[in-house]
Nucleic acid binder design. Sequence first.
DNA 1: CTAGGGTTAG
Length: 745
Amino acid sequence: MYSKFGNIAYAKHVFDKMADRNEASWNNMISGYVKTGFFLDASGLFLQMWDRGFELNGYVIASLLTAFSRSKSMFLEGLQIHGLVLKNGLLYDVFVATSVLHFYGGYALVSDAQLLFNEMPDRNVVSWTSLMVNLADDGLFYEVVNLYQRMRQAGVGCNQNTFTTVISSCGSFDDEFLVHQVLGHVIKTGHEINVSVANSLVSTFGRFGQMEVACYIFNHMDVHDIISWNSILAAFVHNLVFEEALIYFHLMRLNHGEVNETTLSTVLSVCGSMDKLNWGRGLHGLVLKLGYEMDICLTNTLLTMYFESGRCQDAEQLFHGMPEKDLISWNSMMAGYALGSNCLDALRALGVLLRQKKIINFVTFASALSACADKEVLSEGRIVHGLVIVSGLHENLVVGNALISMYGKGGMAHKAKDVFGKMPEKELVTWNALISGFAENGEVDEALVIFKSMREMDIPSNYITLINVLGSFYVPCQLLRQGMPLHGHILVTGFDSDEYVRNSLISMYACCGDLDSSNLIFYALVNRTPATWNSLVAANAHHGQWEEALKLLREMQRAGVNFDQFSLSAALAASSNLAILEDGQHLHGIAIKLRFDHYHYVANGIMDMYGKCGEINDLLKILPEPETRSRLSWNILMSAFSRHGHLLKARETFHEMLVHGSKPDHVSFVAILSACSHGGLVDEGLSYFTSMTSDFGVSAGIEHCVCIVDLLGRSGKLDEAESFIKKMYLSCVSYPVRLAQTPCC
DNA sequence: CTAGGGTTAG
């Protein structure tokens, strides 16, 4: 009796003093230990009891084994008990046998559980369900469904727990037909009124993207428990219906009141992608208020939320304050750094993990590789590739995808193709990554060849495939032979109903110089989304049709379409290239009013606009501090100085940029070379030109050569200019137009 | 006395 009050030590004292201990006293004492978490003592006492020849009680065995299965550190003791069960022929007790089954499942020994199940003399609905749960925990969802069918053939009736397990397993592999079949069975047996069954139906239909069904079930439930609410929230999030998720979260607080770690985790995961940092901070406050700050999973979600909102420092502070970190915490940090193109810190984290020999997995490497997906850090990426091979994860699908994408973005699409060829397993993402690699490097033909082999192999493509292929076109001659047939294919396959594909078509025609077709597609559309408008604006901007771009933006305003960060940066680019200060200032005002002025591209667009309009003081007012200045901002500042004759300032800025650890790129060199040419600094200009390639690894582009010719020509060195021109055709690399950000030669 | 449904990292 004392044990029930938790005073277990006193209970043991009384137990030891008892003169006459019967079976019940032993069993009570053991149960007391189990209930208070003293599993080792419980197990020891149980063995003593057996030594003394007492009859073993199925009730006690079942509760011991259940406790051992939960504790995860009582495996040997559990095995001992299984031994006793066999010796005493207790497997005939279906309760005992089922708890042994569950015990093996708890230690992930599914095949042992399965063997035991086959040998069990008697099975009830719990035994069947327990094995299903074990299989599901091990990811063997197909086996779960098989077992369910065998169970029905055996004439065993399902109960609510059976259904919840089967339904959630159906959601884990692509078989909608099956879940409808199970649903029929559920309704026939009247289990749909059960909260748990309905909850699993809500989340499974959510996983299949059938939100109408999920909502119908949710809205027709008599009672909602916290899991019902969490399930519908997760379903909205999974289907990217973020607004609805926030609305239902609000409803949940009004109608249900209670929220828990899972609720907060689910809602927090949308704050980052929706740019709702305020919500995120508010929810973080709620996490602290409810005392969940020790929850690792929840804190991991907060890390990602802060990274997605661009608040790396908040994420870092939170990470360093975590008393315990798991693999996902580390991986989230690395993914966050990768998101911010912060290769250095991502690799630093990888280094810590490897040196401290912590557990890593495929996601660790996938994140590290994605942090190296840039020409600048490709050499680091190759080292990580080496580490991947050492770790033996090079055949992993996700790691392979990350490798392909890294080599593609790093300008080595053929290396990406090598990796692709060696992958034992491929998915759509793999194909898309390879196509995008060739597309981004301007290798249209290769991209199309891959797309063609996809079709020959009957691999279904998605909108991303088409966007990537469409994005590879960039010269007029590709239109007739390749672009228009692709457009035809898109019409035939019905992908033209996809908004993203339509926008890419508009851009594709524009990139190939056929603005008329872009316009035609645009004006034929009934439902124009802001993104559609932005595509056409960008298409015009791309071709230097700045007036046309501004005209479209005015039309867009008249049509009542709100500007977003994309339209604003396009509009700013147009007004700065036309050097219309009034338009630019007006746009700056709109950006502040709509709170887009802190977006990276918008902020840089505003600075560039002031720079190009000659308002350097206004530029300096919004320029970030040198420590946090991006390369783009450095280039804008340098180009502004250079363009308006502040040659010394331009040169000073170049060196300041180096001091602050920003690597100059081809745009930086255009700026500094043009400053030299305007200032008549011939030798200095030539030495920047030489070190550009040898020290900074930037290949000479046509823009740089123009600066040098100009430099030599202005100072009267016409012979040298001529011989430079003759040489330059041999070594000059021309950049695609889209890379040039602020040409000023 | 034995079984179940909702959350985080590519």
